[in-house]
Design a protein around this nucleic acid. Structure first.
Lengths: 230, 230
DNA sequence: ACCGCTCTTTGTCGCACTGCAAACAGATTC
DNA sequence: GAATCTGTTTGCAGTGCGACAAAGAGCGGT
């Protein structure tokens, strides 16, 4: 394992409030791990031994129900802190995190948290912000699922993905990792079939452009209108 | 305003890790406010000037959608920390909190947070735990709404209410505050009508006992079976 | 360049649930 | 105790979406 440099984390929102010396302290406890596409960073209901910051790639966080159904909780983008179950008072991870493309993360042992906090007290606040915005997202989703019909939920999900991981391409904005209709279905609480139908209809209207595990939004504004119109 | 004593907070999970001296410091910044039934503790989208701990009563946290629909996010029980929007990095409250019975809360100005943290660093961790368990709840709800049909969602909602605010009565366990079918509908993402039908059916089977703004669960175990059976 | 796998598309059918409507009942007010 | 208000029950008709089925298409492996 090569020694890590603080430049890796200096620009991340979570660590930028820290002084260079503090950043050195923090990075010193970490190691960098590569996860090939498809690999699990951690798995649901296993002991939460580590917490992480994603450096490169994208992760899908999925929750499996007792009856075997799967729900996509969210996608993790580079720079995000994740896997902080222990810090929230849990012994095990509440979901699994899978690499949807080759990815790299910084890994700290959960036991390092108190030490880090002592050295950099601002971290607690940063973690609280992180969890707070996830809570807001989760509530938004609850509200959407309670009040909106499927088509609008899919529109919102797509817009969120574009915002979080959109990459400009010739014909519009593409979601920057492989994502299947099944995945979108599991994000919006519907079926693969319904998602496929909706995307096909949108494609006919020139709103989006589909492909195998690929979605390009050609007209984000019109999609937004569709998502919000009452 | 009468001076507050640390005995008010000594037994609350959030403050119990603090030393008596720290508890004195914390309580010193607070004031106690009474909210009559129906009053708002704070309102959605207003500036988050305060945070709170509930001492007595029950609050309903509701979110209003742009199209005017309402969703019940959760109920707050005595001892809980709430209204910590600022600490999560928000300027305004993301929802409204209404007293469903006469209630009393401790109120701190948001600006007191840094001072409190300096005096009692354990508070940050406590807040993180609080938000963490809310996040877990929200995710549970997302999963339920994605994968379960209405009847099962209502069963789960009732079980959660009973667990959080159940009071033993002669014929079973009663939810300890007035709650209408409409409220249950807004918790489970369905309509008042469907909830009424479901509860009526359950009443015929001797599972629950209804009444105006009143629900008594007569047989929690059978309700649990109904909620979990695949 | 072929084969086989996974992902996607499209059609048909049925039903759980919603939306509308109207009557009913327990609480509250004067 | 009558009047009124708010919350609850119940019936019925309509439908959005899920369940099932089967064919088509892009991609990776040998």
């Amino acid at each position: 394992m090569s020694p890590l440099d603080r430049s890796l984390i200096a620009n991340l929102a979570i660590f930028s409030p820290l002084s260079p010396a503090e950043q050195d302290e923090v990075i010193h406890e970490a190691r960098s791990v590569r996860y090939p596409k498809g690999a699990a960073v951690f798995e649901q209901d296993t002991e939460a031994t580590s917490f992480f910051v994603l450096l490169h790639g994208s992760l899908q966080v999925v929750k499996l129900t007792p009856s075997g159904q799967q729900v996509v909780v969210r996608y993790v983008s580079p720079g995000e802190l994740f896997g902080i179950a222990v810090q929230m008072g849990r012994a095990s991870y509440p979901a699994s995190a899978l690499a949807v493309v080759d990815s790299v993360a910084l890994v700290w042992p959960s036991s390092a948290w108190p030490t880090l906090l002592a050295r950099a007290p601002g971290l607690a606040g940063a973690a609280l912000h992180t969890v707070g915005s996830r809570l807001a997202d989760a509530h938004t989703r609850v509200v959407e699922m309670s009040t909106e019909e499927v088509e609008r939920r899919v529109a919102h999900a797509l817009l969120r993905l574009v915002k979080q991981s959109g990459r400009k391409v010739e014909t519009g904005i593409q979601i920057d990792f492989p994502i299947s209709r099944q995945d979108v279905a599991e994000m919006t609480g519907t079926t693969l079939h319904t998602v496929s139908r909706i995307l096909s209809a949108w494609e006919d209207q020139g709103l989006v452009e589909g492909g195998r595990q690929r979605i390009v939004v050609r007209d984000p504004h019109r999609l937004f209108m569709l998502a919000e119109r009452k």
